[in-house]
Design a binder for these strands. Sequence first.
DNA 1: AATGAATGAGTCTTCATTCAT
DNA 2: AATGAATGAAGACTCATTCAT
Lengths: 188, 188, 188, 188
Amino acid sequence: MTDKKERILVATEKLLATHGFHGLSMQMVAKEAQVATGTIYRYFNDKNDLLHQLHEHILGYIAKRISRNINDSMSLKQRYRTMWLNLWHMSVNGEAPLINQGQFQHLPRDNSYEKKALKKQLFSCVNQMFDEGKACLLFKPLKNEILSTLSLETSCYLARQKINGGLEITDSELNAAIEASWDAIIQH
Amino acid sequence: MTDKKERILVATEKLLATHGFHGLSMQMVAKEAQVATGTIYRYFNDKNDLLHQLHEHILGYIAKRISRNINDSMSLKQRYRTMWLNLWHMSVNGEAPLINQGQFQHLPRDNSYEKKALKKQLFSCVNQMFDEGKACLLFKPLKNEILSTLSLETSCYLARQKINGGLEITDSELNAAIEASWDAIIQH
Amino acid sequence: MTDKKERILVATEKLLATHGFHGLSMQMVAKEAQVATGTIYRYFNDKNDLLHQLHEHILGYIAKRISRNINDSMSLKQRYRTMWLNLWHMSVNGEAPLINQGQFQHLPRDNSYEKKALKKQLFSCVNQMFDEGKACLLFKPLKNEILSTLSLETSCYLARQKINGGLEITDSELNAAIEASWDAIIQH
Amino acid sequence: MTDKKERILVATEKLLATHGFHGLSMQMVAKEAQVATGTIYRYFNDKNDLLHQLHEHILGYIAKRISRNINDSMSLKQRYRTMWLNLWHMSVNGEAPLINQGQFQHLPRDNSYEKKALKKQLFSCVNQMFDEGKACLLFKPLKNEILSTLSLETSCYLARQKINGGLEITDSELNAAIEASWDAIIQH
DNA sequence: AATGAATGAGTCTTCATTCAT
DNA sequence: AATGAATGAAGACTCATTCAT
């Protein structure tokens, strides 16, 4: 990817996190990325396109990040803990500030076929874990989306509260939260 | 509350859900509420204030709605199910379209003291349930915020996926999801 | 018509004549009309609409102006001379600077039904003259549009050359031109 | 003339006819001419210069085209008819789409000395015809510009109406129009 | 209390022009 | 000679806010 395009995307992500969707102007992006306003339009059709491409850019990043330090020889529980903490750290460290923030909800043309395909790819290692867990009767027989929401994604929701200043959480509480979310999906 | 003020708030909520935060103009609100533009400024200092008051308005609504059909004679499990389903129906029916959508995240002056107090009030019945559950050793000894995120709030997250078109869910799956989220917080 | 709308139209006509279609900015119009930029958009949908409405405004003016001092008791020749000179003076004095300048050619939505109807009205006295002339066999049996182009409209074309600085013309030459254009349409 | 310069001029003429003066960008011209944007500036100082040179280019074309099939052995009437029809066909066929359209009216630096000289050259055969006609007392003793406007140029004006869709004209009507315009300039 | 016309700063986007390659 | 990425001023249009009525 061109140097400038990359810089524009990075600048947009940063500003989107700070200012939100409204209050994000192309001039601001240009200034932050240290390019001329017009330059943005060489790489993106318009503001919408910029946000869409950013979305895909971020999804790609999350895809890589969520499966860090995961390999098939690990036990299900180990994989679960690792992914949960990957999400947690990514969220808390602001590596993907837009995750779970609904910032992309009002883009027209969203939920397109390509987006869904991308999400498939994103969660491939997640889906594999859930499939295996259900196959050996360790997990409850529910759709992967439901299992994920009940367990893995709680990581992001807790992180959001921490970031917003509404929640402090110790290491042992974090550990207990992981175990509790694990309880939600295993058979008892 | 004045008739006009009420109408303005209702119009704002509707438009906010449809158009998102950006693309919401005072003129649009005035038209939707059948009120002159200037009238809005009788009841609200500025656009920010309108959104803030709307936020509180909505929180108040949710407060009432979440505890519908709840009374102290019900068992903990019954209360949990009822509140979970109250949240679910409210979310799915679009009664509080802004719940969990992050639409209010970028308001300046947010997370103020009054907001937190309001949230306390909002979750008073929720907190009572968690406190009782922990007292009788049925629930895990975790902060109420964590318990809530792991269990009750999954209702909203699932509802959001349903609304976005990314998830279909049957009645039996819904029931299983409630049970699973219950498993997350009880001791095993 | 509102005072401001009138002022905007007048300003636009003036600037259009001076700067042409390109190089006419809404800011210029606003400044010339002594209104705020946004005010223009209370009365006109967009730039196109402004130009369209100006066009009709001008056609209306020409309609009144071309038939000044005309009445049915005058002979055909007298009426012809009067209309020819009305057009001439209007053109030369810059009363309708856009006449015959093709400034409206690139408006989309032009040549609409309403425009044609307006032109009918505009040329009603002209058409009546040509019809009478053909009825008494004084004029050649041609369509009114053709007769008009060959005779009356030469007034504008000559005026345009005078304005552009390409032609000087004396009173007697003017008179001769009227007679010559009369020769074009009468039977010999 | 260089191949590229020619291509740029041709592209500009085409786009000018379609899009009008406004809505013509150098990028569009470059794309249409299959040339890099910067290349245009090898051959033309700026956009104004491009339009000026295009104007001269077109005048040169018209000069050649108007005198096609004309030679001195033809009678005045024959020459008149031929030139009238040359103009007519050129206009109607869109060979010089900018003729009579006022597209060049607002160029600064226009009506320069060179432009006038060019026009002399352009109308040399026309002027010769009018001079001969006046010398033998066939034509009225008026300036050539006036004679031209009253007779020859009606060709363009009628053509414009036909193109705009405001006028349909049969062959016999066309013929009658030529005769009528001839009547305007001859002595009776 | 209510209106809605008016404002003008600010938004997204285009485009004539330059310049390193 | 030719390219086309980059620039940033300027354009059309919007909208939060005010104020005379």
